[in-house]
Nucleic acid binder design. Sequence first.
DNA 1: CGGCGAGTTGAAGAGCTTCAAGCCTGGTGG
DNA 2: CCACCAGGCTTGAAGCTCTTCAACTCGCCG
Lengths: 262, 262
Amino acid sequence: MPRDLDQKILNSKEDDPPQLALLKRLHFYTNLSKEDQAAVVNLAGIIRQYERGIDVVSAGQNLSATLIMRSGWAVRYKALEDGRRQILNVLLPGDIFDLQVLVAAEADHSVMAVTNVSVFSVSPSAMTEILGKTATLTMAFWWTQVQEEAFLREQIVRNGRQTAKERIGSLLLELHRRAQIVDEAVQHDGFKLPLTQTHIADALGLTPIHTNRTLRALQRQGYIERDRNWIWFKDADGLAELCDFDPAYFHIDAYDRRLNSD
Amino acid sequence: MPRDLDQKILNSKEDDPPQLALLKRLHFYTNLSKEDQAAVVNLAGIIRQYERGIDVVSAGQNLSATLIMRSGWAVRYKALEDGRRQILNVLLPGDIFDLQVLVAAEADHSVMAVTNVSVFSVSPSAMTEILGKTATLTMAFWWTQVQEEAFLREQIVRNGRQTAKERIGSLLLELHRRAQIVDEAVQHDGFKLPLTQTHIADALGLTPIHTNRTLRALQRQGYIERDRNWIWFKDADGLAELCDFDPAYFHIDAYDRRLNSD
DNA sequence: CGGCGAGTTGAAGAGCTTCAAGCCTGGTGG
DNA sequence: CCACCAGGCTTGAAGCTCTTCAACTCGCCG
């Protein structure tokens, strides 16, 4: 999917440089020059690994570095006193979190590893440096923030005004698109979803039981098929219509439009 | 509430410079130097007025300027095909919206004036300039973005995992705090809330009917009192506990902590 | 082969919605 | 000055979506 990434970089697999997912993410939306690509690849930081189920960041914790997802899936979540839990967003490879460390010092929510994850930890100074390196890089990073905010807004709409069927359908469609950019386990009409039904329920403000029934209903009605933790779209267009899913909030084409209008 | 704002600036009322609300907002969290304050006050832009009920920004519209709330209340919202509507966030004086214009060109949601509002429209170039003017200013603007994201996350928790009573209580507590910084019609234990019950319902994923019943329940149980569109907290601590409301997400003290740790 | 996490299913019940109607307040015009 | 209108608020009753509680199944790993 990424356009003209340096092939030497793109083809590596097993021994990915830790910055590769980030590069894919940034380059998908903004055409980075060879120099900008090099700056991303040479970004200094430390690799940290977390096992599934472990908190990568805990609410209340003092933050000291920006974290970038390298591989695996994670979720931002907030826990209520009585054990209720709300997942705010799903983090995929290439996603940046706690960029806010540059200004705020304390996490107001937690991040949990859904699969085993590997994150790349970048110091505030290194982050500040690359952020301001070139105008294109500044824009590329800003981009990811704009997108992340759009995901949050969409999540509000889902939880506030959509039915269980719509919530689940639109979340699946969103995750599929996002995974296409940086994940390996993705096909044109399906993807491997590492979330459990309980994760989905906590993201969508439902009970796991109702999530289960709704998934089966979507399946029964011919919208999706499931096999282990793979989701297959049998009628993606129909599902999108059912859910009022409009991917405009990804802002995928804005960069090209900007190129043409400037 | 703002700390050592230049008194000449702070005391003006009727003929507020359009940048005043912004200055209050920025200066509340970050100690701006006299020069930085001047830069904010001298920020170039155009004043635009909108009557209540009118869209300030419409989804799909191409954005060309950053807008800053000068006076009045507005809401970001997203409309679904069938007429359902979800309010994403409330905009108060000093709030910046479409800062993302600097990178993305199309609005993925709308903004509607709840009262008559006055906004200050700043060109991308003027915005870019002040954003990078000093490190403190950069941080101050970044700050507002971090906060806005925190509001969105809180909104997800409300709509996803809280009961009607909790949703309404925590929204009222949040708006009271936010209004304290920039709004006039605010007392220690109450404030003027220009939102209708239908607005509240659309923000919290409820029907206006249920919103009404829940407000009355909160009143009957001694948490709040209402008079016209004023809300009075009779037992703010009790309400906060009821709603699991923890204002940590405002990150109010982070700047001071940062000062001490740097 | 036992146990554990995840998924599945049924039945009863709660919270919120829907539909329907009436009320109250502030603004407008005769 | 009062009648009237519109928008917002209030109340009742029935019904639907989703939850709660409880139990059972399946696949996997030690």
